[in-house]
Design a protein around this nucleic acid. Structure first.
Length: 272
DNA sequence: CGGACAACCTGGCGGC
DNA sequence: TGCCGCCAGGTTGTCC
């Protein structure tokens, strides 16, 4: 489910309810969901810590505590939300982690497929250290992107999904960025012209920014922390539009193929 | 470096 | 209605 725009929307949605609160207890029922540390250490350590700040790095929710950092990765079906202790939510049926706050509210982590992971570490770099640049940051300049592309030879879509190359792009926004840049997903990085690299750099930033402005794409599982849907799915031009007419050129019909084991959508007419 | 593939899990949907 | 196979927004590890 969640890519950079969905995680950013989630972070913005839980920030106010978490910052300044103290975690007084923690509960979970799926041990594999706790990546680190071991359950006993986790419970003992997180209890009593206060939330200083809530941020995002790539697709990770980063909760900075008094003396540690809690990271949550939503993977495909994760949702997090903060609600009163006695509140009931549709997604509760898949809740595997609860963090009890000091104001009779809980941070809940729901995840039907159980792919999501929780980390409690001294330094977030232990988890996020190998990630590539944040595509919407000032550091991610066209020059930086061009130089990085020039060192690569692999299939461009797979490269966009490689979190060590660019952090936060997932299957939806990779397809959308390539569509916007008129580049076929199976092209290899070493065939891209300078113009195409620039268009792709623009495309990545544009589709991610648009995704944030629309508060994420709710195609299937993703919901904002308040339980409602984002609207980015309404603005997609390639992803999920198999068999439909291309809105960009008005000529092609969107095709679906497989690239690197992922469903991939593109217009054979205007993506070359 | 890179590509193919299996694993991790469950739910929803289309087809028969 | 029921069952079956397939698909899914992500990542990691293995093998070649």
């Amino acid at each position: 489910m969640p890519e950079l725009p969905e995680v950013e929307t989630t972070v913005r949605g839980i920030r106010a309810a978490l910052e300044g609160r103290t975690i007084v207890d923690a509960w979970f029922d799926f041990a594999n969901g706790l990546a680190t540390p071991d359950p006993t250490t986790f419970h003992a350590r997180i209890t009593g810590q206060t939330v200083r700040e809530v941020t995002r790095r790539a697709k990770y929710i980063v909760i900075h505590l008094t003396d540690a950092t809690l990271l949550i990765h939503l993977k495909m079906t994760g949702r997090v939300y903060v609600v009163p202790d006695d509140a009931e939510d549709y997604a509760d049926q898949w809740v595997h982690f609860r963090f009890q706050l000091d104001n009779a509210q809980q941070l809940r982590f729901s995840d039907s497929r159980k792919f999501g992971r929780v980390y409690l570490v001294d330094d977030m770099d232990e988890v996020t250290g190998s990630l590539g640049p944040e595509p919407l940051s000032d550091e991610f300049t066209l020059d930086v992107f061009r130089e990085a592309i020039r060192k690569r030879s692999g299939i461009i879509k797979a490269l966009l999904l490689n979190q060590e190359f660019v952090a936060g792009v997932g299957n939806i926004y990779a397809d959308e960025a390539l569509h916007m840049a008129h580049i076929r997903p199976k092209r290899t990085a070493d065939t891209l012209t300078d113009k195409e690299i620039e268009d792709l750099w623009n495309g990545i930033r544009t589709v991610l920014q648009a995704g944030i402005e629309r508060e994420g794409a709710s195609i299937n599982w993703y919901r904002k922390p308040d339980g409602t849907k984002g609207t980015a799915q309404n603005g997609l031009l390639a992803y999920g539009r198999t068999g439909e007419s291309c809105k960009t050129c008005g000529i092609g019909i969107i095709e679906k193929i497989t690239v690197g084991q992922r469903g991939t959508h593109y217009c054979p007419s205007c993506q070359r």
